[in-house]
Design a protein around this nucleic acid. Sequence first.
DNA 1: TTACCGTTATGCGGAATTTGCATAACGCTT
DNA 2: AAGCGTTATGCAAATTCCGCATAACGGTAA
Lengths: 113, 113
Amino acid sequence: MNRVQVRTKVWLEVDGEPLIGDGRERLLLAIERGGSLNAAAAELGISYRKAWSQLQQMEKHAPFALVERSKGGKGGGSTHLTSEAKELLQRFASVKFGLNEMVDEKFAAERPE
Amino acid sequence: MNRVQVRTKVWLEVDGEPLIGDGRERLLLAIERGGSLNAAAAELGISYRKAWSQLQQMEKHAPFALVERSKGGKGGGSTHLTSEAKELLQRFASVKFGLNEMVDEKFAAERPE
DNA sequence: TTACCGTTATGCGGAATTTGCATAACGCTT
DNA sequence: AAGCGTTATGCAAATTCCGCATAACGGTAA
């Protein structure tokens, strides 16, 4: 019974719809760093289309605005996180924090042999 | 920032491939109860095809046999769990146990206001 | 005023995955 | 030899995922 690993996944939901998980957390963080959705997608190595869709889904269910967007103009446009989005990231991070270690411990303790 | 719920998922992997999660746990338990894959599928309200595929995937990656199957004969055939599979179920259950509560606590503690 | 540029926004078709219908194979029982 | 209930699978339909192509936008520079 070796080579077996335990894995966990945590996410937040609103009305039963996914709001934020690991992938979307990465996206928001990259947006914060890069100041645009386009830059974020490039940094993450995913298509702009995919990043846009993910953000779309998040905003569809979030009870508050996550980003402020602008099109055209200087630099072509931009996307920035709202303060609520930053709070959400904080909260999500602290929920995740230490979870894997907790589960690993539990798993190791349960190990036969 | 209300109406937001935290959710978790736990599963075991071997070589990075999923071995057992909630759905497959249910399947194995139903097989144990019913003594056949067919009965298990009916109990769970899923198609036989789907149950069979899930079991197929599990066995593909499990480092030990999960079930003993027989075709034809009295009763048409049967599927029974091996003792290793029963151990696996035990182990998975105890890893899961209490996880949601743990996370809920963490989440509640992190709540602003 | 007009052409250009880098970004956001989105339609759409193809790829990949999931689902379930249909049917074969099996071996005991009668 | 026929029947029964199960396991085993091919295959097509349905669904979801992915990314190419292109439009829209508004500041900037000529």
